[in-house]
Design a protein around this nucleic acid. Sequence first.
RNA 1: AGAGGAAUGGCAGAGUGGUCGAAUGCGGCAGUCUUGAAAACUGUUGUGGGGCAACCCACCGGGGGUUCGAAUCCCUCUUCCUCUGCCA
Length: 424
Amino acid sequence: MLQTTFIRENKEATIAGLQKRYFSDAEDAVELIIKLDRLRRETQGELDRVLTESNAKAKEIGGLMKQGKKAEAEAAKVETATLKERSKELDEQLKKAEAELHNELVKLPNLPHESVPAGRTADDNVTVLEHGEKPTLPSDALPHWDLIKKLDIVDFDLGNKITGAGFPVYKGQGARLQRAMISFFLNEAAAAGYLEIQPPLLVNADSGFGTGQLPDKEGQMYHVTNEDLYLIPTAEVPITNLYRDVILQESELPVKNVGHTQCFRREAGSWGAHVRGLNRLHQFDKVEIVQITKPEESYAALDEMVAHVQMLLEKLELPYRILRLCGGDMGFTSALTYDFEVWSAAQERWLECSSVSNFETYQANRLKLRYKTEGKTQLLHTLNGSALALPRILAALLENNQQADGSIRVPKVLTGYCGFEVVK
RNA sequence: AGAGGAAUGGCAGAGUGGUCGAAUGCGGCAGUCUUGAAAACUGUUGUGGGGCAACCCACCGGGGGUUCGAAUCCCUCUUCCUCUGCCA
């Protein structure tokens, strides 16, 4: 959530930032917020004046009662009635103004960082780096959805039976390979100084609001209605919300947390060949890294996180590229996002496997996540990134490493974790 | 799940209708003393909002109510503790 004082003092920059994102009616939205903010402040001021007066009256009555001047006290009581009525009225007005302002504020996405490229769609994203060689596959190479069936390591039919589409069952070497990757990712993060967290998979609405999933992305989360809880779409939600309503000491910064969780996404309206196999699922595993930093240090932290993800993909020996997302393609809450895509050799497609973002103060403002510096309390910056999301890594790994005999070579870095060198 | 008790500042813990934003202790910060440190002493130390400022307003788990006036009384929700039951 953007800060009203910022919008008030940087009106043109706010409008320009929103326009870079192709946010419709940016000018009207900003004008409305400035108007509602003014109304809110005026109402607050008036209410304060009435309350000052009625506080003074109450004290006066108290004094009179003590002195036993009953008649005078009774007379003063009568005067308070109109003040009371007026303050009630103003209080209602204030609450209404605050609610309206909040309502509008919540509709605004984050402002893009100056380095965010112009553009409206994914086609306008900028490739900042491409690494690794695309493998040459044997002539009878198969896409991963055929490989997993042949090797019997991921079973969609069983998932369909017990749950529904998009909930695969991992079996045998498939399950062990997943477990190996999770351990590998967590250990690498620990080595990089991240504290491991195992959070709940269900969160309340306040948490959904804190990281920006609510109110606008409600439909993308599974909602447990009899308890009013949401299945997390990413570990970002519970982990970042650990720090909701927190004022950190400067010495505690930067906060670096990592967590492995299952992630649940409804992905309403998904379609076609792009969602085949492991390409898009309703439930998947992901290891997520989260950082909380001082404002002046967040972009260095973003670079550090990008380098961490690069390191993981290089150790896995997978070709990848890094995209800087354009204004029109960036997530609602992000100021700058790098997407990582891994090369899936049999599909001959790039698959998104990580998204690393700096949210600057956007989430922190919703979370009331602050720190103290030189006596002042100030909003922090939050960042997160996948390191990594498993299914598409598994897909790329299976496709890229298939050998002439139909078996799959396991990258060296994982063999110690899973206990085998070949999937067959 | 049932019965009872509790929720106050970073922590501990007073406060049961009126100058209480809140005693006291610990912790934190600044200073005095000291070669340095400790101890001792002095001062300071919550969050948000309004105002150029002096200053004003709100907040004692959340919400609502009674009253001229609520941390204090009433209702409700949540959480925690103890006992009983159930359970991985």
